[in-house]
Amino acid sequence: MSVKEKVASILEQNCGKFVSGQELAQQLGCTRGAVWKAIRALQKQGFEITAVTNKGYCMETGGDILTLSGVKKHLSHRCRDMDILVYDCVDSTNDIIKECAKKGEAEGKVVIARQQTGGKGRLGRSFYSPKDTGLYLSILLRPKMQMFRAMRITTCAALAVCDAIESATGRKPDIKWVNDVYLNGAKVCGILTEAAVSVENGGFDYAVLGIGVNVYAPEGGFPDEIADVAGAVADNTVSQLKNKLAAGIISSFMDYYHDIEKGGFRRAYSKRLMWKGEDIYIISREQKTPCRIIDVDDECRLEVEMENGEKRLISSGEISIRRR
């Protein structure tokens, strides 16, 4: 951790209380000048830190800044030893984790960012990732299951996001098949899983799970191209919400992932499935097909009934669904 990160961690642990510059310098083994430089950098980053002569520095309560120490404080015991990095801005958290995977790093590496300049969405789309209003994270996985079960990773991630939002806010999200999380009819989260195949066994070499959450609406609103779809988890600033969401997503996902082969998540996914029993369109590049959603199967393929009564199982692939 850098001096800046260590200062932030100490002030977070003493949130609402003053800590002297001398005490900080002694704890960190650095000069008071280095502490002051770190404080200035944190203030520019958005931390509400009050500096008072002869008293020291105090991090104000009520703010919502994503920090490593804040995330770790809310993690489940199973996840406390995970290797987690928090960045101010990156091109893509998925790309960073891919490089970690190629270098042979262990499963469970997590990269979290406050902003992305090249966030990725499904079907080659970009994912809008503005500064300070969202949460963007990726997890390195090395699944032991076969590739045909890859959708289980994405569906477990969607469930984990729903669990985290409900736990942190009390609001109850739904899942639009296969991996979009909706709250009050608006999309608040997108999920993208990218994988590399092992030539030796036809299974995974690694998988990269990417999750982007709109925690708050950006100033001025969402861009026109997504304004009619996008929403946010919270209407106003909630203290520690980003840290709680990040920790909740990681903790809940790793719980599901631990038992992913057993498929016990299907029932929980089914309960959150949007438009179950309703008429929809399945949209591909070639056509728009009317049908009705029945449920999902054990692999979370969508079970639908066509207009002629025929029942089909739909995999994600290059398709999307829309309510009729």
Rank of each mutant, 00 (worst) to 15 (best):
T154W: 01
I260Q: 02
K72I: 13
L42N: 03
T31Y: 01
V233E: 00
Y136T: 03
M306T: 04
K4M: 12
E219C: 10
S167A: 10
N179L: 05
D174N: 12
F265K: 02
Q13T: 14
T67R: 03
V19C: 12
S167V: 05
E318T: 08
G212M: 02
R323A: 15
E303H: 15
F148E: 02
G185I: 13
Y269G: 00
C162Q: 01
Y136S: 08
D180R: 04
D235L: 04
M145R: 03
R80Q: 14
T117C: 07
Q26I: 03
L183C: 08
K103F: 13
F127N: 04
D297C: 11
A227M: 14
S167G: 05
G70Q: 05
Q13W: 14
D259G: 01
I294Y: 08
N236V: 15
G210N: 09
G190K: 12
K44I: 06
D205F: 04
K102A: 12
R301W: 05
K172S: 05
V296G: 09
Y136D: 08
G202E: 13
K102V: 08
D298M: 14
I280A: 05
V86E: 01
S92F: 13
K4W: 05
K311W: 05
S69F: 11
G263Y: 10
A41D: 13
M306W: 11
F127Q: 10
T117F: 07
M151D: 00
R322F: 05
T154P: 02
N236W: 14
C162H: 03
V178H: 06
S69Y: 10
L11V: 06
S9R: 14
E105S: 15
F18I: 07
V215H: 07
D132H: 05
L141W: 06
K73L: 15
A34I: 13
I314G: 04
A106T: 04
Q13F: 11
K276P: 00
G108Y: 08
R114M: 03
V233Y: 00
N308Y: 07
K120I: 11
T155E: 01
V35Q: 08
Y281C: 06
G317R: 14
S320L: 10
V86S: 01
R312N: 13
S20Q: 00
S126E: 14
K98C: 11
D64Q: 04
A25T: 14
K131Q: 06
C79E: 07
S126V: 05
L141I: 09
G210L: 10
G170W: 09
M254K: 02
K98S: 07
D132K: 12
T237M: 15
A106M: 09
G62Y: 13
